Amino acid sequence: MPPPEKNIPTHHLTSEQFQLTTLETGHPENFNDVHRHNFFEIIWFSHVKEDSYLELDFESHYLKNNQICIIAPGQVFNMKLKGEKGYVLAVSREIFKEVCDIEMILTGGTCPFLLDVQGRKACSTLISLMEEEYNGASRIDLLKAYLQAFCIIIKEQINLQNTSINDRQRIQKLIGLIEEHYIIQRETNFYADQLKISTHHLNDIVRLSRGTTVKKMIAQRLLLEAKRELSFGALTVKEIAFKLGFSDASYFSRFFKKHSGRNPDNFKVGKA
């Protein structure tokens, strides 16, 4: 008999479209080993330990006080709680897309980012209002209004830590385009054409804001999907190669080893 398929557990919102808990009192299932969500999750780490870290899509991120991380549906997440303090907002896709227009978050969440003093005060006020309403009348329209204001503050904080407005908008659009087309479109000129700028200009923007190139961004997205499939899927290496648009398994294996330092067969065994 073939081995049973090993899938990444997916956490779902139950009867509510919006949930607010704290890291101190939240259900441990929220952070139980590797998992993904079918909803958006906003985590505000108000106080962390010296060695606190989380894993997001196989990348480790050490945490600081007053960082926020936004996890998009489908992202692979893992964290072992060690007494950190803060808030967890679980928001359905429908509500999140209604109140938040930050394209890069809608397509791929965010790595942890810091709140400055002003942003921290505003977010603290809004969280208090949300908490009071959630534990009281829990009027969804009011909760959505508070959440929308919270997202406005978040957007400002992200913008403060990014590049110029035009370049930032292009990067956000590029992330969405790569998410949509990375399996079949791997050439920089396709994305430059979509953004109506030259390939040279696009690579300059990406290099200055991200420290990388468009080609490497596409490769990293392919690598991430390959790791997801190898870690938790039931497909063979050959099947994964064709699913990700590679012409043959050997080409896929060379690509995977070049970008990860490991053979896909070894990675699959190591994660099994």
Rank of each mutant, 00 (worst) to 15 (best):
M1D: 09
N7Q: 15
N7L: 14
I8C: 14
T10I: 12
H11G: 00
Q17M: 03
L20Q: 04
G26P: 02
H27F: 05
H27V: 05
P28A: 05
E29A: 12
F31L: 06
N32E: 09
D33M: 07
H37N: 15
N38K: 12
F39I: 02
E41T: 07
H47N: 15
Y53S: 13
E59V: 14
H61Y: 15
K64F: 07
Q67K: 12
C69M: 08
I70Y: 05
Q75M: 08
N78Y: 08
M79T: 06
K80L: 02
K82D: 04
G83T: 03
K85N: 05
K85F: 02
Y87I: 02
V91P: 02
E94R: 09
E94V: 03
I95S: 01
K97I: 03
E98H: 07
C100N: 15
I102K: 09
E103V: 11
P112D: 01
F113H: 11
L114R: 13
L115W: 08
V117A: 10
R120W: 00
K121I: 00
E131G: 01
E132P: 01
E132Y: 15
R139L: 07
R139D: 09
R139T: 00
I140D: 03
L143R: 04
A145V: 06
I152Y: 12
K155D: 10
I158S: 04
I158N: 06
N162M: 09
Q169K: 10
K173D: 08
E179C: 01
I183V: 11
I184Y: 13
R186L: 03
Y191C: 07
A192V: 07
A192C: 04
Q194H: 03
L195M: 05
S198Q: 01
H200R: 13
L202P: 05
L202C: 02
N203I: 06
D204Q: 14
D204H: 15
R207L: 11
R207M: 09
S209P: 10
R210H: 12
T213C: 06
M217H: 09
M217N: 12
R221G: 06
L224Q: 11
E229S: 11
E229C: 09
S231K: 06
A234S: 15
A234L: 05
L244S: 05
A249H: 11
S253D: 07
F256R: 00
F256E: 00
K257D: 12
K258P: 00
K258S: 07
H259A: 11
G261A: 10
N266M: 11
F267V: 05
K268I: 09
K268W: 10
K268C: 10
G270Y: 09
K271H: 08
K271M: 08
K271R: 14
K271T: 02
